[in-house]
Design a protein around this nucleic acid. Structure first.
Length: 490
RNA sequence: GCGGGUGUAGCUCAGUGGUAGAGCGUCACGUUGCCAACGUGAAUGUCGUCGGUUCGAGCCCGAUCACCCGCUCCA
């Protein structure tokens, strides 16, 4: 089976076939940034489309959304990112290794200090006793500089004049755009709880460490759903989404033995999460192999209630226009009737919905699909590289070839190509031996290839060769479109 | 960020101070009637980048950038 055992093999394959290149390569590259080449762009779009089709188009309880990346700073104040989305790090005086404070331990596997995503200003000011902590790199005890906050959001400026420029952040997650539009969607679409809002888009996090190819990058693409439901039904929906999302990967051909769930421990959960599970894929690289593709969390009513607090804080915002200088107002006593609450006509109850959040990484999924599809086999003693993509993910759906470049075969093949390219991503090729053309398409993951031969001139049939079985069917050209639709399930 | 490793043609890599190489791939022409065939020919290099040593640097030295492995982390 697949012999991609090292990340290097995957990187080489991606580059060789035009799936993924390093960003700005002609200038020596830019750390943690990657570009999708011709085949990669198709694959990525197919992954996006497959997700959208499954969670939006095929469901009647989810609607789509496409928010701007730049949002009002108060969004990040209310969500907690502005104050808490940072890691407290310290530097060892001996070996200058940088370590997160909450990862430092005292001698015998001792207690850890939990400082992840805490109020950074307060934490930074606070006295941290690191005198007994051990540097994980050199083993020196208690020799650390004062902890510093490492902020994970990218800053940028908006506005033409220095006077009225405003500091904004590039969104670190797409989810907040959904919460911020919860009211809009309710008021404009006739949706009723339970329902969800789905979005695909870029997010940005200035990670301390990147590495591992496109697995962790500072710019990445998320596919997120916020599914709003009535408190008390949340556990049921959590389970629903867990299964639903796991099956999505399986239905797109991912091998079951390479997928698993990993439940978060209680102490691993964010304070607002009631439960969280990761869908993990067994990548052939890195430590521990299993790496997260998607997280599914029960966030309860935390986010909507936070934004209700944010909306109450706007007077303070107008005074300073600086979220670092203001405090979020306390919750109203009747927060349950607040602007982001929902009135259920059936039960005549008003409540702030609970939220189940399935949050997937598009880039990670692309990589997993790519790795999972890769295979090497043997045909008549010759080795073959093949990507066994599910037809809906395959960058090219069919290759169209004249068997030889003469006797009018190219003209017939061209006509077929022109006929089909409006329906499927096709690739026309008339150069060299047909066997070579088949193999090239195998390596791109094309599920089938159409070949025009001498018989085609007599009876208007062509052969359709299957990528995996190598078997050929003879199909009348008039039936070709339907045949392919059927075969590819498109 | 730390430790270790790597960087030469599109890819895989050889090249240990004296003219920049191979295999595969790509392209052209011929041949070829179903699975990487064959023949002939061709194109392709800031030797990651910048600086230093030297008569001379892909090779030695320094810095820097990027990637990989480990520590770590997460969508």
């Amino acid at each position: 089976m697949a012999k991609l055992t090292k990340l290097d093999d995957i990187v080489a394959l991606c580059k060789r076939r035009g799936f993924i290149y390093q960003s700005s390569e002609i200038y020596g590259g830019l750390a943690s940034c990657y570009d999708y080449g011709p085949l990669g762009a198709e694959l990525k779009r197919n992954v996006r489309n497959a997700w959208w089709k499954t969670v939006v188009q095929m469901r009647d309880d989810i609607v789509g959304l496409d928010c701007s990346i730049l949002m009002h700073p108060m969004v990040w104040k209310a969500s907690g990112h502005a104050d808490k989305f940072a890691d407290l790090v310290t530097v060892c005086k001996k070996c200058s290794t940088r370590t997160r404070v909450d990862h430092l331990q005292e001698k015998p596997g001792g207690q850890q200090e939990h400082t992840e995503h805490v109020a950074i200003d307060a934490e930074e000011a606070k006295e941290h006793n690191l005198s007994k902590k051990v540097c994980p790199s050199c083993g020196t005890v208690g020799q650390f500089n004062k902890p510093m906050a490492f902020k994970l959001m990218f800053e940028t400026q908006m506005g033409a004049n220095v006077d009225d420029t405003m500091t904004l952040w590039l969104r670190p997650e797409t989810a907040q755009g959904i919460f911020a539009n919860f009211r809009n969607v309710l008021d404009s679409t006739r949706v009723k709880v339970p329902f969800g809002i789905a979005q695909i888009g870029k997010s940005f996090r200035n990670e301390v460490t990147t590495k591992a190819f496109i697995f962790r990058t500072r710019e990445f693409e998320q596919a997120e759903i916020e599914f709003f439901c009535k408190p008390g039904t949340d556990e049921e929906w959590y389970k629903h989404w867990k299964d639903f999302r796991f099956n999505w990967y399986l239905n797109l051909g991912m091998k079951k033995e390479n997928l698993r769930f990993r439940d978060h421990d209680k102490d691993e959960l964010a304070h607002y999460a009631k439960a969280c599970v990761d869908v993990e894929y067994k990548f052939p690289f890195g430590s521990g192999d299993w790496q997260e593709l998607e997280g599914i969390a029960n966030r309860q009513d935390f986010d909507l209630r936070q934004h209700q607090r944010g909306m109450r804080t706007m007077n303070a915002w107008y005074e300073t226009r600086d979220v670092t200088k203001l405090q979020l107002k306390d919750e109203a006593e009747d927060w349950i009737k607040g602007p982001l609450s929902y009135f259920d006509e059936e039960s005549k109850e008003r409540f702030v919905p609970y939220v189940i959040e399935p949050s997937a990484g598009i880039d990670r999924s692309c990589l997993a699909f790519l790795v999972d599809a890769y295979d090497e086999d043997e045909i008549n003693g010759e080795q073959r590289n093949v990507l066994r993509f599910h037809p809906s993910l395959a960058p090219i759906k069919t290759g169209i070839f004249p068997l030889v470049k003469k006797d009018g075969l190219p003209e017939i093949a061209r006509n077929i190509y022109d006929e089909l390219k409006g329906c499927f991503a096709c690739f026309y090729d008339e150069k060299g031996a047909v066997g070579r053309r088949y193999r090239r398409q195998d390596e791109a993951g094309t599920p089938c290839c159409i070949t025009v031969d001498g018989q085609s001139k007599e009876d208007q049939t062509v052969t359709v060769r299957d990528r995996d079985s190598l078997k050929q069917d003879r199909v009348n050209t008039a039936q070709l479109k339907n045949y392919l639709r059927d075969k590819l399930g498109l």
